[in-house]
Lab assay of single mutants.
Amino acid sequence: NPITQSQFVPLGEVLCCAISDMNTAQIVVTQESLLERLMKHYPGIAIPSEDILYTTLGTLIKERKIYHTGEGYFIVTP
């Protein structure tokens, strides 16, 4: 039996792509809307728990890849 190979993409990278897409579409990015986006637009991805999502978003903020305001999460533009 051949083994199907899937590509590994770090969660942080997927979140940045999803946040960027949602920002472009002017969709408010909350943790809930982000999870919905992942389920709908990234089939096959293991949906992270709320704790993992929260921690990963926190890491992306520390790395200055995203920022959070009262209006949601946004990509940091250079």
Results as ranks from 00 to 15, higher is better:
75 I>L: 14
6 S>H: 14
9 V>S: 13
60 L>E: 02
11 L>N: 00
72 G>H: 01
25 A>I: 01
50 E>M: 15
69 T>K: 09
73 Y>C: 02
13 E>V: 05
67 Y>P: 00
10 P>E: 06
56 T>A: 08
20 S>Y: 06
52 I>V: 13
75 I>M: 10
39 M>E: 12
19 I>S: 01
17 C>M: 15
36 E>Q: 08
7 Q>H: 08
38 L>E: 01
15 L>V: 13
73 Y>V: 02
64 R>S: 04
51 D>C: 05
42 Y>P: 07
12 G>K: 09
26 Q>M: 06
69 T>A: 06
42 Y>E: 12
37 R>Y: 12
45 I>S: 09
53 L>D: 00
73 Y>I: 02
40 K>I: 05
25 A>H: 11
42 Y>C: 07
32 E>C: 05
77 T>R: 13
4 T>G: 05
47 I>P: 09
48 P>W: 07
32 E>H: 04
7 Q>N: 10
2 P>G: 03
48 P>N: 04
42 Y>F: 08
43 P>E: 07
47 I>E: 05
44 G>T: 10
19 I>R: 00
30 T>E: 02
67 Y>C: 14
13 E>K: 08
76 V>I: 07
46 A>T: 09
64 R>L: 03
4 T>M: 13
24 T>V: 08
59 T>A: 15
53 L>E: 01
40 K>A: 12
9 V>C: 10
11 L>G: 02
46 A>F: 07
7 Q>R: 08
23 N>M: 02
75 I>F: 08
51 D>G: 10
59 T>R: 14
66 I>T: 01
66 I>K: 02
45 I>Q: 09
58 G>H: 09
36 E>F: 06
4 T>Y: 13
11 L>V: 04
57 L>M: 06
26 Q>I: 01
78 P>W: 02
9 V>L: 12
58 G>K: 11
46 A>S: 09
6 S>C: 10
25 A>Y: 04
59 T>K: 13
65 K>G: 02
30 T>F: 00
58 G>W: 05
74 F>D: 02
3 I>K: 15
41 H>D: 10
3 I>T: 13
43 P>G: 06
78 P>S: 13
40 K>T: 15
1 N>W: 03
55 T>I: 11
10 P>D: 11
2 P>I: 15
58 G>N: 13
21 D>R: 05
29 V>C: 13
19 I>E: 02
31 Q>L: 11
16 C>L: 14
25 A>M: 09
55 T>C: 11
16 C>Y: 14
44 G>F: 08
43 P>I: 03
35 L>T: 10
29 V>R: 00
55 T>N: 10
16 C>M: 15
16 C>F: 09
32 E>F: 04
11 L>D: 04
14 V>A: 11
65 K>T: 03
48 P>R: 02
46 A>G: 08
64 R>P: 01
34 L>I: 10
39 M>W: 09
58 G>D: 07
68 H>A: 11
36 E>R: 10
67 Y>V: 12
27 I>F: 04
67 Y>K: 13
69 T>S: 13
1 N>L: 04
6 S>N: 15
71 E>H: 05
48 P>Y: 06
27 I>A: 06
1 N>T: 03
33 S>T: 13
29 V>P: 01
25 A>D: 14
46 A>N: 08
21 D>P: 01
3 I>N: 13
8 F>M: 14
26 Q>R: 10
51 D>Y: 07
28 V>L: 13
77 T>C: 06
51 D>E: 10
41 H>Q: 11
12 G>C: 10
17 C>K: 15
3 I>W: 02
10 P>L: 14
12 G>R: 15
55 T>P: 03
14 V>I: 15
26 Q>G: 11
53 L>S: 01
28 V>M: 09
57 L>P: 00
59 T>F: 09
73 Y>G: 09
31 Q>D: 05
40 K>Y: 08
2 P>L: 15
18 A>M: 15
57 L>Y: 03
50 E>K: 15
78 P>C: 05
71 E>N: 13
46 A>H: 07
26 Q>C: 08
11 L>M: 04
73 Y>P: 00
